[in-house]
Design a protein around this nucleic acid. Structure first.
Length: 103
DNA sequence: GATCAGGCTCTAA
DNA sequence: ATTAGAGCCTGAT
């Protein structure tokens, strides 16, 4: 199950368009598992650098970067990558009204 | 197995 | 706008 789940999420995350973002819950939902939001983070933490996934386009439902409390370095990297794609980041916040991915 | 902690989310105060 | 509590699920001890 978890392998399949990871595969689904990976697939979804890869579909996030450049310059847009998606929330953990949204990804879990799109993958077909509505309550696995937390697993997304856990999984990404595990995968991290060795993957080509646009993990930086994944944020929490409040439009903020949850990494901020956990990994400053990673947070800065994420913000940098997002800005590279034209996403405006205020501190650790992103305007979901504008940048949220709507499939 | 039982327990704990975690890149979450929702609702209510 | 912020904070607190409860729900849900998984991976690691």
């Amino acid at each position: 199950m978890s392998v399949e789940l990871g595969g689904m999420m990976m697939n979804i995350i890869q579909q996030i368009p450049k310059g847009q973002v998606a929330t953990y819950g949204q990804i879990a939902k799109l993958a077909g598992f509505p309550r696995h939001a937390r697993y997304v983070g856990t999984l990404l933490k595990n995968m991290d650098a060795e993957s080509e996934l646009p993990w930086h386009r994944v944020i929490n439902s409040q439009g903020k970067i949850s990494l901020s409390k956990l990994d400053d370095h990673g947070m800065n990297l994420q913000i940098a990558k997002l800005r590279e794609e034209g996403v405006v980041v205020n501190g650790d916040k992103i305007d979901l009204k504008i940048y949220l991915w709507r499939p």
